[in-house]
Amino acid sequence: MNRKNKWIIYGIGLSLLLGGCMNMDNANGNGVDEKKNTQDEVEDQSDRLVSVQEYNGEGYTLENGQENDKIAEANREEVGKAVKDFFLEKYKTDVEVHNIVGNVDGASVFVESIGKPHFHTYAVVPIDLSEKKILTDQVYSSEGEVENAISSGVYGLMYEDEFTKLNKVIEGMAEELAFTGETSEAINNTATFGYGTPYYYVSFGDIERSNLVIDTYMENPKTSKDEWKKKLNISELDPESVYITIQLFKDMQGKNPSKEELERVVKTIKDTKGIPVGAYNILLHDNTIDKETGVGSKETTIEKSLPDYIIKK
């Protein structure tokens, strides 16, 4: 499969990111979402909900990963080194390992890039369960996963000043409307979104420019912000090819977001000039998050999102 087709397939999957997830449940290693979506799970979800301020990623699990989780944890140093070597050799990137979670095929390892461009992503270390053997020479990542994270990180670098302004705008709204974001620990231990903050994450979907990003990055991962801007000609970027998903949680338990609050956030984003170009999706949650999936979306969530997003040019 050529790279273009890989990116088309990955682009189709971007819509999955807009349902409220700041992590990928298909981090189990086979590219298939194995989280249950049955009514029974919805009914049982209340037992798994914790306050977003308290959530640090503890309890995050992947389907059928219990046995491999034990093996990976017992060999944590070996697993971590294999993943660091993988990113350095394949993507010329130094990463910090934050979390290792067993999956059906092995262990999903959640990492953060060191330096700029900044992004979160993951890789999978296969495990031979029958022999309880770590296959350190077979580390891999899902098609397009790391590439999108790198492209997202480069976008964050190119629009560094604009994202700084967006940060201030969102922090102001959060304080005024009594919202908060995820903890840095939760992001480090569960997120694979590329570039982002406790309040939002960015998905880059321009196939042509994404290919150019990866080619340029592999030539020189230390490409400067100004060089990136010249190389990518961002003035021609289609804003609908970049998804910026804002997620806010009520800062007190027992409180639900209101339509009036959503309208206020939407209006602020629409009216604010000088923030990054992109298609903005907004999700407002109550105070809780599912500790097993790291997802905040539930029946109390209200949103303005795909296909009804806000376009900023």
Rank of each mutant, 00 (worst) to 15 (best):
Thr192Tyr: 07
Glu63Cys: 08
Asn5Thr: 07
Thr216Ala: 10
Ile127Trp: 01
Lys259Asp: 09
Asn188Ser: 09
Cys21Met: 10
Phe87Cys: 05
Val277Glu: 07
Phe163Val: 10
Ala27Trp: 04
Thr136Ala: 10
Ser152Thr: 08
Ser152Glu: 14
Leu306Arg: 09
Val146Ser: 13
Asp308Glu: 13
Glu236Gln: 07
Leu18Pro: 01
Ile234Gly: 02
Gly172Phe: 03
Glu208Tyr: 14
Ile207Pro: 11
Gln39His: 06
Ser142Met: 15
Tyr195Leu: 04
Gly278Arg: 10
Asn148Met: 14
Lys165Phe: 10
Met252Lys: 15
Asp308Phe: 01
Glu112Met: 06
Val104Tyr: 06
Phe204His: 15
Glu89Asp: 14
Ile187Tyr: 00
Asp33Asn: 15
Lys36Trp: 08
Ile8Val: 04
Ile114Gly: 01
Ala149Lys: 12
Met252Gln: 15
Asp85Glu: 15
Glu145Gly: 09
Val42Gly: 05
Val277Gly: 01
Thr183Met: 07
Asn220Lys: 13
Thr293Ile: 09
Lys231Ile: 00
Asn75Cys: 04
Ile244Glu: 11
Leu17Pro: 00
Met252Gly: 03
Leu49Lys: 14
Ile282Gln: 07
Asn26Asp: 15
Ser305Asp: 11
Lys84Gly: 04
Asp44Arg: 12
Asn37Glu: 11
Glu292Ile: 05
Asp33Gly: 11
Asp206Tyr: 06
Gln138Tyr: 08
Gly29Gln: 09
Pro307Arg: 05
Lys116Asp: 12
Ser224Ala: 03
Glu63Gly: 05
Asp128Met: 07
Lys133Ser: 03
Thr245Pro: 01
Asn75Phe: 11
Ile282Asp: 06
Lys81Leu: 08
Glu175Pro: 02
Val42Phe: 08
Arg264Thr: 15
Ser297Gly: 10
Tyr122Thr: 09
Phe249Gly: 05
Trp228Tyr: 12
Asn30Val: 15
Lys81His: 01
Gly65Leu: 11
Asn2Phe: 01
Thr216Glu: 00
Glu96Gly: 04
Ser305Tyr: 02
Lys132Phe: 04
Thr272Val: 11
Asp238Lys: 14
Asn188Cys: 03
Thr38Arg: 03
Gln45Lys: 15
Ile234Trp: 10
Glu299His: 03
Glu263Gln: 14
Asn2Ala: 05
Leu177Met: 10
Thr180Leu: 07
Leu212Ser: 11
Val101Leu: 07
Ile269Cys: 08
Leu177Lys: 00
Val79Cys: 09
Asp25Leu: 13
Thr121Ile: 10
Gly80Asp: 01
Glu58Asp: 13
Val125Ser: 13
Lys132Leu: 01
Val52Phe: 04
Glu77Gln: 13
Ile150Pro: 11
Asn28Ile: 11
Lys165Asn: 14
Gly156Leu: 01
Asp85Ser: 08
Pro239Gln: 00
Val52Asn: 13
Trp228Gln: 03
His98Ser: 07
Ile246Met: 14
Ile187Val: 12
Ile187Gly: 00
Glu292Asp: 09
Gly181Lys: 05
Gly102Lys: 06
Tyr140Gly: 11
Ser15His: 08
Glu162Thr: 01
Glu208Met: 00
Met173Lys: 08
Ala178Glu: 14
Val79Met: 05
Glu78Gly: 02
Lys81Asp: 12
Thr164Pro: 01
Val146Lys: 13
Ser210Ala: 10
Glu260Asn: 06
Pro221Leu: 03
Pro257Trp: 02
Asn103Ile: 00
Asp94Ser: 08
Asp40Gly: 06
Glu303Arg: 13
Gln253Asn: 15
Ala123Ile: 11
Ser184Gly: 02
His98Phe: 09
Tyr122Asn: 11
